[in-house]
C-alpha cells in the first residue's frame, strides 16, 4: 500500500487525478470519438474557469479576503466583450483573419481594461474598509454581486444576449470521426498561455516571490520590510482583469449569455478554489480542470446529475484533504 502511494506521488500525486477521471470516463463512455470531444470541451472549460478563479485564490491567500463579488468581474467581462464583438460585427465576419483577430483582441482588451479599473475601484472602496472582518466581507461583497447583476440588467436588458464568434474560430476540425470545436481548442491554448505567464511571474520574479511569501505569512513579509497592502491592490487588479478575460472567453464559448452568469459562475469558482487549495495557482488549475472535465463527462453520462457533480466533487475532496488538493502553505 505504501509502495503504491509512493509510486503514485512520484508519478505526479494529485496531478494524476484529472488523468484518472478521464480514464474512468473513457471506460464508461465507450465511444472514443465522443470521449475526445468531451475531453477537449472539459479542458477548454477548465482553462476558462481557471482564469476566473485564479485571482480569487490569490486574493484570499494574500489578505484573507473572501470576495463573493469576484464573479461580477466575470459577468461584466462577458457582457462588455459581447458588446464590443457585436459592434465590430463587420470585422468578425470578414474573411481576413487579421481583422477577425483585431476584433477579438479589442473585445478582450476592453474586458481586461474594465477588470483593471473595476478591480482598483472595488478594492479601494469596498474591500479596504473590511480587511480582517470576514462576516462584513461576505455581506458587502455579496451585496456588490447583486448590485452588479442589477447593473447588467439595467444596461443590457434581461433577455439572453447572443455573442458572435469571429469567423476564424467558427466550426470544427474533423480528424477521423472526432470533431474538435476550434473555439474550444483556442480557449484551451489561451488559458494555458495565461497560466504559463502567471506561473513564470510567480516563480521567476521578485514580485512573485513576495506574493508567494505573503500568501504563507503576510506578517513576516512585512517584518522583512515589504508592504503587502500595496502589493495586494496590484494582485487584486490583475485577478479582476483575469476574471473579466475569463468572462469574455466564456461569452464566446457559450454564445448566449444572461445576467445570471455572475451568480452561476460564483459557485463554480468557489468550488474550484476550495478544491484546489486557497492561495495556490497550481491548485486552482488542478481544481478548474477537474471541474471542467467532470461537468462534461457527467453531463454526457448522467445529465440529471450534472448540477450536483461539482458539489459531490468538492465534498469528496474536502473529506479526503480538508485544505484542498494542493494548498499553498506547507
Amino acid at each position: 500500500m505504501t509502495q503504491i502511494s509512493a509510486t503514485l506521488s512520484r508519478l505526479g500525486g494529485v496531478y494524476l487525478l484529472p488523468v484518472a477521471v478521464s480514464v474512468i470516463a473513457f471506460i464508461l463512455i465507450g465511444a472514443p470519438s465522443s470521449w475526445v470531444t468531451l475531453t477537449v470541451a472539459g479542458l477548454a472549460m477548465g482553462m476558462m474557469i481557471f482564469l476566473m478563479a485564479s485571482g480569487l485564490s490569490l486574493v484570499f491567500g494574500l489578505m484573507d479576503v473572501l470576495n463573493f463579488g469576484h464573479s461580477a468581474f466575470v459577468s461584466f467581462g462577458a457582457f462588455i466583450a459581447a458588446s464590443v464583438l457585436a459592434w465590430l460585427g463587420g470585422w468578425l465576419g470578414a474573411d481576413s483573419i487579421a481583422l477577425n483577430m483585431l476584433a477579438l483582441m479589442a473585445a478582450f482588451t476592453a474586458a481586461i481594461l474594465f477588470g483593471l479599473a473595476a478591480g482598483w475601484f472595488f478594492e479601494t472602496v469596498v474591500i479596504r474598509p473590511v480587511y480582517a472582518d470576514h462576516l462584513r466581507q461576505i455581506l458587502i461583497t455579496m451585496g456588490a454581486l447583486i448590485v452588479a447583476e442589477q447593473a447588467i440588467l439595467a444596461i443590457w436588458g434581461g433577455s439572453p444576449l447572443s455573442v458572435p464568434r469571429p469567423n476564424f474560430l467558427q466550426g470544427s476540425w474533423l480528424i477521423g470521426d472526432v470533431t474538435i470545436e476550434i473555439y474550444r481548442a483556442f480557449a484551451f491554448l489561451l488559458g494555458l498561455a495565461v497560466y504559463i505567464a502567471l506561473y513564470a511571474v510567480l516563480n521567476r520574479t521578485r514580485i512573485g516571490l513576495l506574493i508567494r511569501a505573503g500568501v504563507e505569512n503576510r506578517e513576516m513579509v512585512e517584518a522583512l520590510g515589504f508592504r503587502i497592502d500595496r502589493l495586494f491592490i496590484g494582485v487584486f487588479m490583475a485577478g479582476s482583469a483575469l476574471a473579466s478575460l475569463g468572462g469574455a472567453m466564456w461569452a464566446g464559448y457559450e454564445t448566449l449569455i444572461t445576467p445570471a452568469l455572475g451568480a452561476e459562475m460564483m459557485i463554480v469558482v468557489f468550488i474550484v478554489v476550495i478544491i484546489g487549495g486557497l492561495g495556490s495557482i497550481q491548485g486552482t488549475l488542478l481544481g478548474a480542470i477537474l471541474v471542467g472535465l467532470m461537468a462534461n463527462y457527467i453531463g454526457f453520462l448522467a445529465p440529471k446529475l450534472a448540477l450536483a457533480s461539482n458539489m459531490i466533487l468538492m465534498m469528496a475532496v474536502l473529506l479526503w484533504r480538508p485544505n484542498g488538493l494542493r494548498p499553498a502553505v506547507k
Binding site: 504563507e216 505569512n217 512585512e222 517584518a223 520590510g225 515589504f226 499553498a328
Partner: peptide
Amino acid sequence: TVDIARLGIAFVPENMGIFGGL
C-alpha cells in the same frame, strides 16, 4: 511594521516565520 523594519530592526519570531514553500 514595514517602516520599523526599514530602520534596520530585524525580527526572528518565536515560530521562526520561515516560508516553507520557498
